[in-house]
């Protein structure tokens, strides 16, 4: 927990320094012909005259309340802007991870159980494509095939959305579901192949262990041996990787969102970079840092659920 807080402080510090290094905000905000007195005035009202530690403390305090100031580009509150777009990115990432897990794990299990089957070989070859093709190319290819040539699915946007509180969801409309298919496949394909290869190699490893041999010697059914005993033992590394990848999916949704004009945080970030909109960039950085930290915490908790050996070590460490 202490570690998590330290990580967040470090991320905040980096985000904060961006303000100082990417030029003078006053020079950017104010026009060239603003008198010098007014510049000083503006500087004072914005609190830019205070010493660095004080300003950093203020930044952290505001960030903790979700306040990152006003956007230079649109003069909207940054927190609002991000919050408006966050549901789009989270929904996209969620579907991408689900696609990756739901397809990747069974494929990995199959190719682990029957490594010489032709289907396994075919999957391994296809997975090479998934790993080596860049995301934007996959996205463009999918658009070309399914949106342009076949015309089945939309090539951009979220479709119709429904607003529930602050959360806008595309899950409640048909066009929303249609719109999410291509971007989520694009985003999840790399993760899917990664998970498939990971599960495969873990399965191969676990199937060689003594307890699997002993489980067979006890006359358990193949289903019990493969899915009860073998698969559960492959899950610890899969959870780790999925957790880490979930973070990167959210962070690297930037590219997919750009290709599909998906109105999410990634697209916002890219637009902000082009406009040197530092408050938005800083907020995005802090947000992604926070997501990574949260995901890692969840992953650690999941370890304890899956592996009893860690539980007792934790208990022992707690008793000391």
């Amino acid at each position: 927990m202490v570690q998590a807080v330290l990580v967040m402080l470090a991320v905040a510090f980096i985000a904060f320094t961006m303000f100082n290094f990417v030029g003078d905000p006053v020079a950017i905000m104010a026009g060239q012909d603003l008198p010098a007195e007014q510049r000083v005035e503006l500087r004072k009202t914005l609190g830019l005259d205070d010493p660095t530690p004080v300003r950093f403390a203020r930044f952290v305090a505001n960030a903790a309340q979700g306040q990152f100031g006003l956007s230079y580009r649109t003069t909207e509150p940054v927190g609002r802007m991000i919050l408006d777009r966050l549901p789009a990115t989270l929904e996209l990432s969620l579907i991408a991870v689900l696609v990756a897990l739901v397809i990747g794990i069974p494929m990995g299990v199959f190719s682990g159980l029957y490594p010489h089957h032709w289907i396994s070989r075919a999957m391994m070859t296809v997975s090479l494509i998934g790993i080596s093709l860049p995301t934007f190319l996959i996205g463009i290819l999918l658009i070309l095939i399914f949106a342009v040539m076949l015309g089945w699915l939309p090539s951009f946007g979220r479709g119709d959305t429904v607003k529930i509180g602050f959360w806008t969801t595309g899950f409640l409309t048909v066009s929303g579901w249609k719109a999410i298919i291509l971007p989520s496949i694009t985003l999840g394909l790399f993760q899917m192949t990664l998970i498939m290869r990971l599960v495969r190699s873990e399965m191969l490893e676990v199937l060689r262990t003594d307890y699997i041999k002993f489980a067979r010697a006890r006359g358990l059914t193949n289903r019990a041996v493969h899915f009860g005993h073998a698969l559960k033992n492959t899950l610890v590394p899969v959870i780790t990787i999925t957790g880490l990848q979930l973070g990167s999916i959210i962070a690297f949704a930037i590219i997919t969102e750009t290709v599909f004009s998906w109105p999410g945080v990634g697209l916002l970030f890219l637009q902000s970079v082009q406009a040197v909109d530092i408050p938005v960039m800083a907020a995005y950085l802090v947000l992604i840092g926070l997501l990574f930290v949260l995901i890692n915490l969840i992953v650690d908790v999941l370890y304890f659920v899956v592996d009893p050996r860690l539980r007792s070590q934790g208990a022992k460490a707690g008793a000391k």
């Binding site: 003594d210 002993f214 005993h229 033992n233």
Partner: peptide, 8 residues
């Protein structure tokens, strides 16, 4: 190593 570590 004969017993599965994840099950009671």
């Amino acid at each position: 190593t004969s017993l599965n570590p994840l099950y009671k």
